[in-house]
Amino acid sequence: MRMGFRTILEASGIEVAGEAATGRQAVAAAQEIAPDVVLMDVQMPDMDGIEATRRILSQDRRPRILIVTTFDRDDYLFAALDAGASGFLLKNAGPEELVAAVRVVASGDALLAPEVTRRVIERHARPATAASAPDPGLTDREREVLRLLAEALSNAEIAERLFIGEATVKTHVSNVLQKLGARDRVAAVVYAHRHGLA
């Protein structure tokens, strides 16, 4: 499986800086190599991928971690997100999806396999009453951008919908994440659903 991933990624111009066969090796390799993105399995010898993710993200160098697993299980999904993973992809994803996922996560965005996105929203989105919802100080335009993020639109699609430049959308998304205290787009979408902003 690792050899297959390496072949796919290198053929797409993505440098594979290292490999690890166990969770402990992954933690050590991440510290030594300082990669931009780590592809992490859930079930591995020695230490599972969830614990390895936690340990890697507790280090000084904090790569983005993309969980790639055959197991479409809620407990793995939510444990991975709680541990700080930036993405969750199933191994049945095609080569193009894998490459795109690595690039999305490397750019600082979050990514969830389409099969699991709805479950994340359903589990975490419990609308608050207007009185209990905190005011994050979003501008009207930032609220529009947040609503469109919650529709799973890309920056390019948001730009087209709002008739503004993609660079402007990136600025709005960055402001939204900062004001919400959200680490990525997934966390922002969960916030939007929980507080009735989407």
Rank of each mutant, 00 (worst) to 15 (best):
A17Y: 04
A26K: 01
H195E: 10
A125R: 00
L90I: 02
R6D: 08
S107C: 04
G137L: 08
G165D: 06
D48I: 07
G181S: 03
L177P: 05
D75W: 13
F78V: 06
S12N: 15
R118N: 09
E122M: 10
Q25V: 11
A100V: 02
R55F: 05
A128I: 05
A100T: 13
R118F: 07
V169H: 02
V38A: 12
L197D: 07
Q59F: 07
G87H: 04
P45R: 00
L9I: 04
T171Y: 05
S174K: 08
L9F: 04
P136H: 00
A34D: 14
K91M: 02
D74P: 12
V99C: 01
I164N: 01
A128T: 14
A182Q: 06
R147A: 08
R183I: 11
L180W: 01
T69M: 00
R64P: 10
A28H: 14
I56L: 01
T139R: 01
N155Q: 14
A188H: 13
A83T: 09
D72E: 15
Y191C: 00
R55A: 03
A17Q: 08
A152C: 06
A26G: 12
V189G: 01
R61A: 04
A106E: 14
R119T: 08
T139C: 03
F88Y: 15
E19Y: 11
N92T: 13
E166W: 01
V104P: 03
D48T: 09
M3D: 15
L149G: 04
R183S: 09
V190F: 03
M44T: 12
V105C: 02
A130F: 11
A133V: 06
D41H: 12
S12A: 15
I164V: 07
E160T: 02
I164A: 00
N92V: 04
R183T: 13
G108L: 09
D72P: 10
R185L: 05
A192R: 02
E15D: 14
D184V: 09
G13K: 00
R185C: 02
V16E: 02
V68I: 07
S58N: 15
R141T: 13
H124L: 08
R103H: 10
E144P: 07
L89Y: 08
N155A: 08
R123V: 06
A156Y: 13
E115D: 14
D135P: 11
R161E: 11
A128C: 06
H193V: 12
L162A: 00
L197H: 11
R103A: 03
L148D: 05
I50D: 01
A26P: 12
Y191M: 01
I67K: 02
S154D: 09
A156E: 15
T117L: 07
L153Y: 15
A28G: 10
P134D: 00
A106F: 10
L148A: 00
R118E: 15
I14T: 07
L153P: 02
N92C: 01
Q43V: 15
K179N: 07
G4K: 12
